[in-house]
Amino acid sequence: MASWYEMLKEAMVRDGEDFDKRSCTLDEEALKKEFDSVHGDPEGAAFTAWGEKWVYFPLCYDGGEWVGHAPRNVCDISMAHQGGW
């Protein structure tokens, strides 16, 4: 079992963002709701979260769910393909 809270925190820390200063469309309770992030249909709630430099959102491929991100502002960062390949 996993939660968006855990996955979002991991992604934001990896990006150098301050997790405690995020804005998110889900409240703490919804972020902490556990779901099967590995098998079956998507179970995690839809969300968008904003850090100072990145925007975060759910991704899903072949039953697996994880947090994707893109730059918050126009910049010279090219993003790789999102999802599975």
Rank of each mutant, 00 (worst) to 15 (best):
E52R: 14
G40K: 03
D20A: 13
P71D: 01
Y61V: 11
R72I: 10
F47Q: 00
W54V: 12
F35Q: 01
M7D: 11
W85P: 04
M12N: 06
M1V: 08
W54Q: 13
D76T: 12
G16H: 13
W54C: 06
D76G: 03
P42T: 00
R22A: 01
L26F: 05
T48V: 14
W50I: 04
K32F: 02
L8N: 03
F19Y: 07
K33Q: 09
Y56I: 11
T25Q: 09
A46M: 09
R72K: 15
F19N: 02
M1F: 07
A70P: 00
P58K: 12
F19H: 05
Y56V: 14
F57E: 00
G84K: 03
S78C: 06
M1E: 02
T25V: 05
C75A: 14
E52F: 08
F47V: 02
G44A: 09
G83M: 04
W66E: 02
G16L: 12
V13D: 10
V13A: 03
L31F: 01
D76V: 11
M79K: 07
F35A: 12
E10N: 14
M1K: 07
W85I: 11
A45K: 08
A11I: 11
Y61L: 01
E34C: 06
K33T: 12
E17F: 07
Q82W: 13
E29D: 07
P58F: 15
V38K: 07
E6K: 15
F57L: 07
F35S: 05
A11Q: 15
S3D: 03
E52N: 07
A11G: 01
K32H: 00
W54Y: 15
H39K: 05
L26Y: 06
P42W: 05
E29K: 08
M1I: 04
D15L: 15
V55N: 01
Q82R: 15
K53Q: 14
G68V: 11
H39T: 06
W85N: 04
E29V: 13
V38L: 12
F57S: 09
A11F: 01
L8T: 10
D18Q: 01
N73K: 11
D76Y: 02
Y56W: 14
L26T: 01
Y5F: 15
E17Q: 07
M7A: 03
F57K: 08
E6R: 10
E65A: 11
C75L: 09
S78W: 14
Y5L: 15
D27C: 09
G16K: 10
E10H: 13
F19I: 05
F47H: 02
S23Y: 11
P58H: 08
E17I: 10
K9L: 09
G16T: 11
A11M: 14
A46I: 07
K32M: 04
S37N: 08
G40L: 01
M7H: 12
M7I: 10
P58L: 09
I77P: 01
L31C: 01
A2N: 06
R22W: 08
Y61Q: 00
N73E: 15
Q82D: 13
D18H: 06
K9H: 14
R72N: 04
D20K: 14
G63W: 08
W54I: 11
